[in-house]
């Protein structure tokens, strides 16, 4: 199968600072859940930020459906069909749930269509309908994450990238978050996920990518990587567990 998104030997860092990514490569195939794991400071979040254009790519290339998206601004990458949910969930705390959803479709011209899509989202995530007039800042952590993920679906993107969606959530809620990811893939959305909690991330992923020191160490089906002795070494061996 040809890659939907291909990250090839990317080098990037913050401002004029040292490179955080040193030739990272990731191949994203359509319709699957991909999980990037790696110890602290491996460059997982940095990789997602480089893909959406929040960071300048110094070397290497990122192609989406064969076309380079390197050097595009975040809003341009968004219009190509790549949504990004950063770690801090990127909600507007003093806007209502409905208004937050509406902001998800800010780049849409057809506002009637937008309202219809919001209704669809509300039908699929009843909690969002229930809380529609409540400020997003008053939602629980799990509900906020649900809102962030549901909001990306409004634009019907091809790829949704999630930076540690499970951060700070109780295990039961985390399971719900992974269920939502499944729902998204059933909709034909491809997921690229970064997880600090490697075990859980890999358990739910079709494909795992192990990143360390800004480089791709190895990749493979999630279950395989889970049982790979190198993982044990990376997390429990010479280096401290993340």
């Amino acid at each position: 199968m040809s890659a939907l998104l291909q990250v090839s030997n990317v080098t990037a860092g913050y401002g004029d600072g040292p490179a955080i990514l040193n030739g990272a490569s990731v191949k994203v195939e359509p319709g699957k859940v991909h999980c990037i794991i790696g110890p602290n400071g491996a460059g997982k979040s940095t990789l997602l930020k480089a893909i959406v254009g929040m960071l300048r790519i110094r070397e290497g290339d990122v192609t989406f459906k064969g076309e380079s998206v390197k050097g595009l601004r975040p809003d341009q990458v968004l219009r190509k069909g790549i949504c990004f949910v950063p770690q801090e969930r990127a909600l507007f705390p003093k806007m209502t749930v409905r208004e937050n959803l509406r902001m998800g479709g800010y780049s849409m011209r057809d506002k009637v269509d937008l309202e219809r899509r919001i209704d669809e989202i509300e039908a699929r995530f009843p909690i969002l309908k229930e809380r529609r007039d409540q400020h997003a800042g008053t939602l629980s952590g799990g509900q906020q994450q649900t809102l962030s993920m549901a909001r990306t679906m409004i634009l019907r993107p091809e790829i949704v990238m999630l930076d540690e969606p499970s951060l700070g959530l109780a295990p039961k809620i985390v399971a719900e978050i992974f269920d939502i990811m499944r729902v998204m893939t059933e909709d034909g959305i491809t997921i690229l996920l970064v997880e600090q909690n490697a075990l859980m991330g890999l358990k739910h992923a079709d494909w795992g990518v192990v990143l360390d020191l800004g480089r791709t160490l190895f990749e493979g089906p999630g279950q395989e990587i889970l049982n790979d002795p190198r993982i044990q070494e990376l997390y429990l061996g010479g280096r401290k567990a993340a």
């Binding site: 959406v52 809003d75 990127a90 507007f92 509406r102 902001m103 998800g104 800010y106």
Partner: peptide, 21 residues
Amino acid sequence: AFGNAIRATTQNRDAAELLGV
């Protein structure tokens, strides 16, 4: 819509930018 974009930018500038504002 633009007023909402103003409020969104006030509350979370990075997030607004990511959504195409």
